[in-house]
């Protein structure tokens, strides 16, 4: 059900933005817009399909622990 909510949300957002912004901007901006939306869509869908995605928080904590003086 959450996958359905996520898909519906992205569809609604892109439809709304299409009329308001997307047909007035240049190609580069459209490219950046769609690529960012695609990344977030993939992350959300995978997360709700119970695929474990490595969290940046873990990576940061591990990197900080590697430095001297921080436990």
């Amino acid at each position: 059900m959450l996958i359905g909510i996520v898909l519906f949300l992205f569809l609604a957002v892109i439809l709304y933005d299409y009329n308001v912004y997307l047909n007035k901007v240049r190609v580069q901006e459209k490219v950046v817009y769609y690529s960012l939306m695609l990344i977030s869509l993939c992350i959300l869908l995978l997360q709700n399909a119970n695929v474990s995605i490595p969290s940046p928080a873990e990576a940061i904590i591990n990197a900080l622990r590697a430095l001297p003086g921080i436990q």
Binding site: V32, L36, I39, L41, I43, Q47, A57
Partner: peptide
Amino acid sequence: NNRVFIMPVGMLALALSSIL
């Protein structure tokens, strides 16, 4: 035009917040 990027950045923050 920076207005148009607020929504994708918001979606990115949403995605990030669900995996953090």
